[in-house]
Write a protein that binds this DNA or RNA. Structure first.
Length: 272
DNA sequence: AGATGATCCTGTATGC
DNA sequence: TGCATACAGGATCATC
């Protein structure tokens, strides 16, 4: 499930190839009509001027004032080699080979559409997205203000509004690092805990970016490599295995309709 | 308005 | 072995 580190890895891999090229044609393949692939044909004739990332979204601003917005969803992948199945979008590009960018997405949770640059009205998650966790805007003051809600901290991390780019894996990892119980009301966190969690979010995401993401099953970098962060996971997917700090078994519960792994020894419901 | 739950979708894992 | 069912989850929509 691509989160910030995986999308950033994809961005870094694709940028040197894509930026500067002209989109000769953009068409949907095995993709039904609908808003997930809206306006694709408008990309034709425009040059890709940059490859940016915002949260889990890949943003490719175009020379004609539009913007190609790609979200990988659960299973989306971008490649220069034509996939055998589940092909949703093909971009034909100018320049030396390879000249095709393929968007494959078996589970169809992903999106690939063209909007007017910066006009995210059809993408509320992007429009209301919180600060980039690895950027300067993710200040302690802003973070503390965002925590002023009864919403469980795990749900808040997943909502993209308080901070961008955190998904189920790195939410569990950050909470484990910070020793905070995932069901704690956000506003029950002390200032110290808020500071610790903010640092944990930054640390786990930075380390995962350095490892090119987490490969559990499907995710690959555009060159086909596996992300190397999986061995560093301390909570996610470790149900029943010993906590790396206190050796108590990691437990799994459902929170915010998501599987949530944590250590009942290190991550207490009450402030320490 | 903010928060919660259902929904989409298919590969993989589990159960009988 | 083979079939049926459960499960995984990001963002969005409907519904409080």
């Amino acid at each position: 499930m691509p989160e910030l580190p995986e999308v950033e890895t994809v961005r870094r891999a694709l940028a040197p190839w894509l930026v500067g090229r002209r989109v000769l044609r953009a068409r949907r393949a095995q993709a039904p009509p609908g808003p997930k692939y809206a306006g694709l044909e408008r990309a034709a004739g425009q040059r890709i001027v940059a490859a940016r990332r915002r949260g889990k979204f890949l943003l490719l601003p175009l020379s004609g004032g539009d913007e190609l917005v790609i979200h990988l969803g659960m299973s989306g992948a971008l490649a220069s080699r034509r996939p055998a199945d589940h092909l949703r979008v093909v971009l034909e590009l100018s320049g030396p080979p390879p000249r095709q960018l393929y968007f494959r997405d078996p589970r169809r949770f992903g999106r690939c559409l063209v909007v007017a640059a910066g006009d995210y009205r059809s993408l509320p998650a992007l429009e209301r997205m919180g600060p980039e966790p690895l950027g300067r805007d993710f200040t302690l003051a802003r973070w503390c203000a965002a925590l002023c809600t009864p919403t469980p901290i795990k749900a808040l991390l997943l909502a993209q509004r308080a901070v961008a780019g955190v998904g189920n894996i790195y939410a569990d990892e950050a909470l484990w690092l910070a020793r905070i119980h995932p069901a704690r009301p956000s506003r029950s966190l002390s200032r110290d805990e808020a500071r610790t969690l903010r640092r944990a979010i930054r640390r786990v995401l930075a380390r995962a970016v350095a490892a090119q993401g987490t490969t559990l099953q499907d995710y690959r970098t555009p060159s086909g490599a596996r992300g190397r962060f999986a061995p560093e996971l301390a909570a996610y997917g470790r149900e029943g295995e010993p906590c790396r700090r206190c050796a108590r078994p990691i437990v799994k519960v459902v929170l915010a309709a998501r599987g949530t792994c944590f250590c009942p020894g290190c991550q207490r419901r009450t402030a320490a």
